[in-house]
Design a protein around this nucleic acid. Structure first.
Lengths: 231, 231, 231, 231
DNA sequence: GATGAATGAGGGTTCATTCAT
DNA sequence: TATGAATGAACCCTCATTCAT
């Protein structure tokens, strides 16, 4: 009968680390990686391979066979770590974006002048996202997000809404000081927009017309935070 | 993209009679539509159905069976008009974006004050793209473009580069008059960025946080074209 | 994403016979079998092949590839006629047992002396079931029925319960006339039991110890309908 | 039966120590169970778990993973005791039916009046089989036997043929005394038939129409051993 | 012995594409 | 031209079996 098992939404499988626990108990000092280390390593290898394949071909067109090959494992092994292809994809996106979440909250607290902050933000974006595999993850989010509403919601809830809330708080203060037009408080998307352009552009048109992203973003903040502005 | 199609010589199959059909429709006198008109009608029906399906599910997940059903024809008939699924997709995007091309060139000629022009542009975008099926086409372009380099190139060459060239010419003059910061001349993407945000946002997050696109775009041009700016 | 489509319970697919209707309209007299005839033929071929394979290997162990090969078609073709393997199996059983249903109802009406009737019943069983592929179907029912509760219920409702109801009515009258012990009215299964033995035996032990089924059944009714019995 | 196992020489793997283990249990004095006892215990646990799973799902649909889980051991451990899934199944059936064999031989020796004997037989069947896990084993035999010819042969040779031989001897004497119709001597299956009905019925139709097996069997022997019968 | 992670062949199902009608 | 039945290559997922620890 062997039917596709009804997908429980986005759970993660994974070898229960009984052996790992044992190793820990034993005080494992062996040079050969412990079982749990190997296990974690594999998981990472699969995620890395999946990122490559999903980025290159998109979710649907990616074959798990290729992911396995790239990760240097057998096809079935993937299923020891991820319930199914959907889950693999979602875990990948979550795993790559989760580290961002911590840093975001911090941002709201600062009280630097906005233009300075903006420069740091640009830097952060370029170094932590644009020059990183996270760029690909966000591109995947953009491309495939519609078919993974859970993921879109996660991204919105855990990343975007927080970023925007933090920005709004900040911008409100800045606007009160006249540093920033009030419109930005309502539409923090306007600040982020060029970052989106950067990601989409690099995916589609880079080869026809390269884009100096850092300079573009710089130009953008100079436009927004024009000194003599009357808010 | 599942099977390598055995012959891949010409790019588009089917009666290359869009123009002819149109002529026939205009000049034909028989009440029953002429063969060419019927043919063109079918082609349109297929494209319309394809747009619906591709938009709803993405390229890979779309089944030609469903496209046919929606178009009210048999599956095989699609192959009388389009060589294969890839071609159908590319023709669809091209057909939807082609009408834009004409309008673009015109834009460069004007010499209205940029802020006025910008308002018209916003209006144009909202009415001709955002509130139109073209929004879906551009979203498709964004989502699937990477797997259709030809299409990306077409889009860049026929649409984007022209738009940006026209904008640059215009902005240069405006910058010379001090109406606009010079940075925009180098990065006209900065003007278009919020439009991209609008399209991506509406596809992914509209349900969690609706976005008043028209107001956002308005706010954006007000930011850019601040009157007292020192360029 | 290509997931197993959620199974709608036991519907039957099948090429809609539009073409067939057309042929009918046209008054098809061509010697080549009409499309609908070919279609029906294929359906039969698949069912026949499926019966062979299911009988030989059981439900789970049967590969649809083999069914297709035996039917002389491609694997995918099966899915034009049957939603999935489950459905194929259930349709097979239903199709083979349905013809029995008509004959059953008739039985209750007769008012022959039971021993005569019993002899006819034996004859019916041997000719219509035991010497027929229906034997295999019933064996399949016995072997796999537990995993197809719907089928078991169908079989009980449409076949067994009717047979037993008819028998009970009949036996009651016969018992009233003293021809039959009353116990049989309560347990008509006792009359059918040797038929079950015949089917099970022939599947498992025939090769070690052949069984003369007809004689066994004859002996059985002679045991039951002993003339001088005091009910 | 999925993969051809690379080595198929001996029939059963694992410690052939059932007897040894039993002896150990009887004679061992250490409180911690001896190695053999532990081993035998595991073997029993696996068999018990296998019985549960095979009964619930059938041979093919049973996953050794589930058997292991139910037995509280690791999957690989099964292979220390049984060469493969096939062997496990066959060992299970053999192990469950073996105890019956001893009791059978005894039966032939008695010289009670058959009707009395028959009553004891019914009782034996109900208590030792029908109300026991052996019911499931026999059902498995019936369902899966065809794919295990060796098992069918074993069952026929070691169980059925002996039962029937014993019965025949007995019935012959009884028939000579006029207690029983001669037909039964030729077809002792007729005596066993309702037992088969009981097992099959309880598996398939119990939920739709419960069957009072003990009464049915009682009714059956009353039918067969009618006092005033003229053999 | 015992474990359970890893393997990879296998099979059900889908769907782009073909082709006889 | 139009049809839609037929094809068969793919691809996801399962699970018996192996083997390093």
């Amino acid at each position: 009968m062997k039917k596709a098992s009804p997908r429980k939404t986005s759970e993660t499988a994974g070898p229960k680390t009984v052996a790992g626990a044992r190793a820990a108990r034993a005080g494992g000092k062996s040079l050969a990686p412990s079982r749990e280390a190997r296990s974690a390593g594999r998981r990472e290898a699969i995620l890395a391979a999946a990122l490559d394949e999903f980025s290159a071909r998109g979710f649907e067109a990616t074959r798990l066979d290729d992911v396995a090959k790239r990760a240097g494992i057998a096809k079935g092994t993937i299923y020891l770590y991820f319930r199914d292809k959907d889950t693999l994809f979602q875990e990948l996106v979550r795993a790559m974006l989760a580290p961002l979440i911590g840093g975001i909250e911090a941002m709201g607290a600062t009280d630097l002048p906005v233009n300075l902050l903006a420069e740091r933000l640009v830097d952060l974006f370029v170094r932590e996202i644009y020059e990183t595999r996270r760029q690909d993850v966000i591109r995947l989010m953009i491309s495939e997000g519609r078919r993974f509403p859970k993921l879109a919601e996660f991204y919105y809830r855990e990343v975007l809404s927080r970023v925007f809330d933090a920005m709004r708080a900040l911008l409100k203060r800045a606007a009160a000081r006249g540093e920033v037009p009030v419109a930005l408080v309502e539409f923090p998307q306007l600040i982020a927009a060029p970052a989106l352009v950067a990601i989409v552009w690099s995916g589609l048109f880079e080869r026809y017309a390269p884009l100096d992203v850092r300079r573009m973003l710089k130009a953008h903040i100079e436009l927004l935070f024009v000194p003599g502005r009357v808010a």
